[in-house]
Nucleic acid binder design. Structure first.
Lengths: 117, 117
DNA sequence: CGCATTGTTCGATGATCCCGGTACAATTGG
DNA sequence: CCAATTGTACCGGGATCATCGAACAATGCG
């Protein structure tokens, strides 16, 4: 099961933005960003939702847009953020998005600090 | 015709990203970012495309997501980027996106500089 | 070798999106 | 007042998207 990933210079910001402009995928990327190795079900369980096939769909969108690497390992499927590539092509973009997502999450939780640290 | 704009702290990054994850809207925002006052048809003509009603649709998406202000003035409709609000809520996001869009445009034009200046 | 685990593919369904056309409202200029 | 300009509202069609269930392939464990 070899997945097709775009090369670094085939990545398009329009695709990245629309990939991340979805609550489930943005949450998934936040989990990947937190570090550690993740397989599909681990993220799926953390999100607490969705059928496996739904998640497969979201992984494909993230993979096709160049946001993640998806690498088969044994019977699992390891997921990693393509941070180096994204940072190289769009400096500051990923950090801005991720800390923005934290800001939103804090607001939605009712925090009044305005901080996203 | 008073438009409904979200307050600064009602803006959600998910909405911003999906609003800008569209070629037409991203191009429109790049035009607004270039400065100057724009009305709908001026942008529409610069983009060289689409029916007025299509553009109205895109303005609504950009407005609802908090990316632009839309202010009636006489029989026109002035469009402005909400740069202050976006910068306040998501520091670095807009700049990263806009310069990323320039990078993409340069690549698609065949440039090999890799620069987005 | 069985069997459970992992995750994909396929098909279907309802929702949403993008787009253009027509009609209409508001404003300005002659 | 009348006509032109500006842009929205509404509608309908086609495409894409998000979701799920079911079936299937691959792997690893006992």
């Amino acid at each position: 099961m070899a997945f097709r990933h775009p090369d670094r210079d085939q990545i398009r910001i329009e695709d990245v933005l629309s990939a991340l402009g979805n609550a489930v995928r943005l949450a998934a990327v936040r989990i990947l960003d937190a570090g550690g190795e993740h397989n599909c079900t681990s993220v799926l369980n953390t999100l607490g939702i969705t059928a496996k096939s739904t998640m497969t769909h979201h992984w494909r969108v993230l993979r096709d847009s160049g946001v993640i690497w998806q690498r088969p390992s044994g019977r699992e499927n390891l997921l990693v953020l393509r941070r180096e590539d994204l940072d190289a092509r769009y400096p500051g973009l990923l950090d801005a998005i991720l800390s923005g997502a934290r800001t939103d999450a804090a607001l939605d939780r009712g925090d009044r600090t305005g901080s996203a640290a």
